Simulated assay, not measured.
Amino acid sequence: MSIFRTDIWRTGIVRAPIAAIRDVGSLAPFSIRWLPNPGSFCFLADPFGLWRDGKLHVFVEHYDYRTRKGIINLLILNGNLDVLEHGTVLSKPWHLSYPFVFEAEGETWMLPEAHRSGRLTLYRARRFPWTWEPVPEFLFPCAAIDATPVRVKDGWWMFYAPPFPKTERTTALRMARADSLMGPWEDMFPLPVRGDGGSSRMGGTPIVQENSITLPMQDCRDTYGGAVQLLRLSLPLADRPSFTMGPRLTAPLSANPFVEGMHTLSGAGDVTLIDTKQIVRNAPRRLLMDVRHRLSRI
């Protein structure tokens, strides 16, 4: 991460379901409620949400450049999208992000990105929404990045980016399969099913229909998280996945000055969660932060 530029993200709630955004192919027509960031050189990103008891529970990565580490925070909003509560639900010695939250088998689960821990860990809500416990019986072959599970007729699929080599974290999409959520999971193909920087890293919740799945993918060709590229995967799955390029979604002008990137599109009922980016160029302040961070680790 360069000291000459700082990526600051901001989370927004679009007042439209994710399928409507896909059909229109743009965020411009929709009203967006922007959530405040927690302070200077901190941001909220990677939002995923669930409605429960009339309240929207938004799980986000909270990142602080002073610690160079992300934790998972929760914001609880009412029906008018006003923030009622805000706090931390998951913090580890390693970086956490992409808190993919979903419901299955009568439980609520979270599958955050944590490749620096050396594994992919599934969490179960012991007391939703604040208390989560790791699930030791969940088995996955690698510390997958931005792992996104989908329930299909014949079991489960997992879309993810490999942790190594580093160059493939934004240029390789892999698919794994399991009969049950707990696994064991096995890669469906020996090679990545996609291999480009424009549509290979997951960026949100899939839209599942009878004959297709639409995948929100990050476009990282010009900058990390520059836009969300929608991919349509035809069903049933053939010998090799058949993808069709859909709309490319960019930060709307209403997000100004956070219009230099967008890398999450996640559905939550009648709303959709997004994040957009502002690039701040401020070498002296970032340099001081990085020096302090390095000294704190000595």
Rank of each mutant, 00 (worst) to 15 (best):
G106D: 03
W157I: 08
W94M: 02
I3N: 13
P192I: 04
W185N: 07
L56T: 07
L231C: 03
Y224S: 06
L230C: 06
H115Q: 12
K92W: 12
A125M: 12
L77P: 08
G195N: 14
F4P: 04
I13H: 08
M245W: 02
G12C: 01
G155R: 05
L191Y: 12
W51D: 05
G54Q: 11
G49L: 00
A143T: 07
R194M: 14
L295M: 04
V101M: 09
A16I: 00
H57W: 09
A172R: 13
Y63L: 07
N256Q: 11
V208I: 14
Y65D: 08
D219L: 10
L90S: 03
D179Q: 13
I213K: 01
P252T: 06
G54L: 11
Y224A: 11
F102C: 05
K69E: 03
L249T: 12
S266L: 03
D239K: 10
S180A: 11
G87T: 11
S266E: 02
E210P: 01
T6I: 11
R119I: 10
G87W: 12
L56K: 01
Y224V: 10
K277A: 02
R5E: 15
R127I: 01
M245R: 13
T276N: 00
P163F: 08
D270F: 04
I32K: 01
L50S: 05
R294Q: 09
I8D: 11
L84Y: 07
R174P: 01
A227V: 10
P247M: 11
H293R: 13
L295W: 07
G203W: 08
I32Y: 02
P149T: 12
N80P: 01
L253C: 10
A238H: 10
T11Y: 06
R15Q: 14
M202S: 02
S40Q: 13
E113M: 06
I207L: 14
P190V: 04
T264G: 09
Y224H: 13
W9N: 05
I13T: 04
H57D: 01
G225D: 02
V228H: 06
V259W: 06
T214P: 00
A143E: 09
R116Y: 13
M289T: 03
N78L: 09
D46Q: 02
G246Q: 03
T167G: 09
V83W: 05
D146F: 10
G155E: 02
G269M: 09
L233N: 00
I279N: 12
A114I: 07
S117M: 13
D23T: 01
A104K: 05
R297N: 02
I13Q: 03
L122F: 12
S199H: 14
D7N: 15
L230K: 01
E103I: 10
L77K: 10
R10A: 08
F138L: 05
S254Y: 03
V228W: 07
